[in-house]
Simulated assay, not measured.
Amino acid sequence: MAGHSQFKNIMHRKGAQDAKRARAFARLIREITVAARSGLPDPASNPRLRAAVMAARQANMPKDTVDRAIKKAVGAGAGDDYAEVRYEGYGPAGVAVIIEALTDNRNRTAADVRSAFAKHGGALGETNSVSFLFSRLGVVRYPASVADEDSMLEAAIEAGADNVESGPDGHEVTCAADSFFPVRDALEAKFGSPEEAKVEWRPATTVTLDEEKAASLLKLLDVLEDNDDVQNVYANFDIPEAVLAKLSG
C-alpha cells in the first residue's frame, strides 16, 4: 500500500459509511465554493470549478446540491470565506506528510493539525519542509475499457502529458501541474469523462513501514482525514501487503 493512493485500501477499516459520505460531500462543497469565487460561476469558463464539479459528480453528489453550492458561493452574503492552507510535517518513522486544507479559521486548523502530529509520534514542520520530497502532478485516470494502450499513449502525448501507465486496472496519465487542465480537457474530448482527474502530490521515494510504525502512522492519517478542514492528505510511505493484512485483521 503506497501513500499516494491516499489510503483507499484501508478505508474499510473505518465504520460509519454515511458519516464518511457526509464529510466527503462537505469537502467537495468547500472546493466548489472556493472555485466558484475564484473565477466565473460557470464550469465551462472556470477550469477549477469544472474540476470540482467533476469530482462531485464522481462522488455521486446530486446535481441540485452542486447547483445550490455554486449559487450560494456567488450570492449576496455568500457566507464563510475559506482560505487555502498547506501544512507539512513528519510522522512516525520519518514519513513525510502534506496536508491541504480549506479553512475559515487558520488558528483552529493549525492547532488541530499540530495536535494530531504531537499525539501520534510526529512533528509539524514549516512550509516546504517536506514538499521537496514530492512532485506536484496532474493525474487523469480512465478505465482500461475506454482505449487500448497505444491509443491512450498517442492521445496523451498529443494532449501534452508526460507519462502514461496502462494495465488491467486502467490508464493513468500524468502531466505537469501547470498542464493539468488542457491535458484533462483534451482527453475528455476524446474519451469522455475520466474516472478521476486531479492535481496531487506524488512522493519521489517511499518509506517502508513495519507493523508498529504502520499502526502509528495510520492513526495519524485517520485523525487528519477526519478533520473537517482537511481536503487532502499525502504521505511517502509503503506498507507491505503482509503487514497491511495483519492491521486489517
Rank of each mutant, 00 (worst) to 15 (best):
A24I: 10
A24P: 01
F25R: 10
A26Q: 11
A26L: 03
R27G: 06
L28K: 07
I29S: 05
I29E: 07
I29D: 04
I29F: 09
I29Q: 10
R30S: 07
R30H: 02
R30A: 08
R30W: 01
R30P: 01
E31K: 13
E31R: 14
I32N: 04
I32R: 03
I32A: 03
T33H: 10
T33E: 04
V34E: 06
V34P: 10
V34D: 05
A35G: 09
A35E: 03
A35M: 07
A36G: 07
S38N: 05
G39V: 04
G39M: 06
G39R: 10
G39L: 06
P41C: 08
P41A: 08
D42Y: 09
D42V: 15
D42G: 06
P43Y: 04
A44H: 08
A44W: 04
A44Y: 05
A44T: 09
S45G: 03
N46Y: 13
P47A: 05
R48T: 10
R48Q: 14
R48V: 11
R48Y: 09
R48N: 11
L49A: 05
R50N: 12
R50M: 12
R50K: 15
R50W: 08
A51P: 14
A51I: 13
A51H: 11
A52P: 13
A52W: 10
V53F: 06
V53L: 05
M54P: 02
M54H: 11
M54W: 08
A55R: 15
A55Q: 10
A55T: 03
A56C: 07
A56Y: 04
R57Q: 08
R57D: 07
Q58I: 06
A59I: 02
A59V: 02
M61A: 03
M61F: 01
P62C: 02
K63L: 08
K63R: 09
D64Y: 13
T65S: 08
V66C: 09
D67H: 13
D67A: 15
R68L: 12
R68S: 14
R68Q: 14
A69C: 01
A69K: 02
K71N: 15
K72H: 12
A73C: 11
A73K: 13
V74H: 12
V74Y: 13
V74C: 13
G75Q: 13
G75M: 12
G75S: 15
G75A: 15
A76N: 10
G77H: 14
A78N: 15
G79N: 11
G79T: 09
G79V: 11
D80L: 10
D80R: 14
D81S: 14
A83M: 06
E84F: 14
V85H: 03
V85E: 06
V85Y: 01
V85M: 08
R86K: 06
R86M: 05
Y87T: 02
Y87C: 03
E88W: 04
E88A: 03
E88F: 05
G89P: 02
G89M: 03
Y90I: 00
Y90E: 01
G91Y: 01
G91K: 00
G91Q: 02
G91E: 00
A93T: 01
G94N: 00
G94W: 00
V95I: 00
V95R: 02
V95G: 01
V95K: 01
